[in-house]
C-alpha cells in the first residue's frame, strides 16, 4: 500500500514538472498561491512564534537555576533553538494544517466536480497547472515565513523574559548577539525549503486522487495533514542528522 502510494506520488510529481503550456498563466497562479500561503499565513505564524519564543525563555530560565550559569545563556539557547528547530518545524506543522488541508480540499473538490477532467479534455496538463504553482509558492514562501518566525520567536523571548522577570533585556540581548553560527540559518533554510515542498506536494497528491464525493474530500484533507506532519518530522530528523 505504501509503495503503491509512493509510486503514484512520484509519477504525479513527474507530470507536475512538465513544461507549462503558457508561463504567463502559470505566473498568475504562482502569485495567487504565494499570496495564499505567505500573506494568508503570516498573522498565524507571527502569533504562534511570538508566544513560543516567550514561553521558551521562561522555561529555559526555570531550568537554569544555577548561579554558575550566566543568564545571558537564556537568549543564546532561545536563539539557537528557534533557528534550528522551533521556527522551521512549528511553522511547517502549522502550515500543514492550514495550507495543506486547504490545498487538498481545493484540488479534491475540483476532482469530484469533474473540473480536473475538464482541464484534461482541453489538453491542459492538470497536475502542472494545479500543483506546480502551489509547490513553487511553498518552497519560496515557507522559508520567508520561517525567517519571520525566527525573528518573532527571538523578540517574543525578549518580551516574555522582560515581562516575567526571567531575564533582563540587557542579558537577553547579550545572549542572542554572542557566539552566533551562521550555519544554523543554512540548516533552517534547508528544512524550510524541504518542508514547503512536502506540505504542498503531499496535500496536492491527496486531493488529486480523491474518488467519491464531499465526504472523501474531507477524509483526504485530514489524511493530507496527518501524512504531511509525519513526513515533516521524519525529514526534520534526516536533515538534522545529515547537516549537524
Amino acid at each position: 500500500m505504501f509503495f503503491t502510494d509512493f509510486g503514484k506520488y512520484l509519477l504525479l510529481i513527474k507530470s507536475v514538472f512538465k513544461k507549462p503550456e503558457k508561463w504567463r498563466i502559470y505566473w498568475k497562479e504562482i502569485f495567487l498561491s504565494m499570496d495564499n500561503i505567505g500573506v494568508g499565513s503570516l498573522s498565524l505564524v507571527a502569533i504562534i512564534s511570538t508566544f513560543i519564543g516567550a514561553v521558551m525563555t521562561m522555561q529555559i530560565a526555570f531550568q537554569l537555576v544555577s548561579d554558575l550559569i550566566p543568564s545571558s545563556i537564556i537568549g543564546q539557547i532561545n536563539r539557537d533553538s528557534s533557528i534550528l528547530e522551533l521556527s522551521p518545524t512549528i511553522t511547517a506543522l502549522v502550515l500543514a494544517g492550514k495550507v495543506g488541508s486547504s490545498i487538498s480540499s481545493q484540488i479534491g473538490s475540483m476532482r469530484v466536480s469533474e473540473q480536473i477532467d475538464a482541464l484534461e479534455i482541453m489538453g491542459i496538463n492538470a497536475p502542472g497547472y494545479l500543483i506546480l504553482p502551489k509547490i513553487i509558492a511553498g518552497i519560496t514562501m515557507v522559508p520567508l515565513l520561517v525567517i519571520v518566525s525566527i525573528f518573532l520567536a527571538i523578540f517574543g523571548g525578549l518580551a516574555g523574559g522582560a515581562i516575567s522577570g526571567a531575564v533582563t533585556p540587557a542579558d537577553y540581548i547579550m545572549g542572542i548577539t554572542g557566539d552566533f553560527n551562521g550555519y544554523t540559518v543554512t540548516v533552517a533554510m534547508v528544512k524550510a525549503f524541504v518542508f514547503g515542498f512536502v506540505i504542498t506536494s503531499i496535500s496536492a497528491y491527496q486531493g488529486f486522487y480523491v474518488r467519491g464525493g464531499s465526504l472523501e474530500v474531507g477524509l483526504a484533507s485530514t489524511k493530507s495533514v496527518v501524512v504531511s506532519c509525519i513526513t515533516i518530522l521524519a525529514c526534520d530528523y534526516i536533515i538534522t542528522a545529515l547537516m549537524l
Binding site: 475540483m110 466536480s113 469533474e114 473540473q115 475538464a118 484534461e120 479534455i121 482541453m122 489538453g123
Partner: peptide
Amino acid sequence: RIPIRKEIGMLFQNSALFD
C-alpha cells in the same frame, strides 16, 4: 493527444465550470 484534444469540446454532467 493535444492537437486532437483542441478539437474536442465537452459538456459535463454537472457542467464542471471552474468555480
